[in-house]
Nucleic acid binder design. Sequence first.
DNA 1: ACATTAAGTGATT
DNA 2: AATCACTTAATGT
Length: 210
Amino acid sequence: MIEQLNQNYGYLFEDKLLDEIMSVGVYKKVSEGIPLIEIGDYINSMPLILKGAIKIQREDKEGEELILYFIEPGDTCAMTLSCCMGQSKSEIRAIAETDVELIMIPVQKMDEWMSKYKSWQNFILKSYHDRMSELLEAIDTIAFLKMDMRILKYLRDKAMVNHDDIIKVTHKEIAQDLHTSRVVVSRLLKVLENDGKIELHRNHLKIIDL
DNA sequence: ACATTAAGTGATT
DNA sequence: AATCACTTAATGT
């Protein structure tokens, strides 16, 4: 855990802060597909991701879901940040996209470190900024890009966070993530296959060239 | 062999 | 781009 912390955050934080993280943080390992945060949950600790990726999604009252973005090692969850400060409920759901290793930091420490460590303050501010950018990007994607472009982006993101060009996912799951119908996904994937960009198989697909 | 689930397709709006 | 209705193919029991 120490090596992983250093590897992902060592260049960001000063040694004293790393020591504190080590002593106060709780190491957790979460398997793929397990929800980390549900909508409506109160958040009492913030995650620092060491390994793997987490999928952040939004959901409406009918239970329809939609992908917002993925977070990876070196990232933290901006929702956590705003929730912790305002003591409000989570408005998003976080699901482990892959097997994930992370360190949970109690919220009280966040405040403390904000004034104590310049590097922490920078990290939080930068995280906020990064998430905000990603959110805007997500909005652009949803509002302005056509479905075929959205699927391309989805596949690229997915390949990136998994570090694998074989993506194990069904058309139905893609449809749910992008909030569209399975038939549409099947058709668009078929087009991509004909263009030689991907290979289709049952329960998984392979990226050739995006 | 049969049931279940994933994926492909034409037609319609 | 969504929905329906139907087919085909893969997989589990």
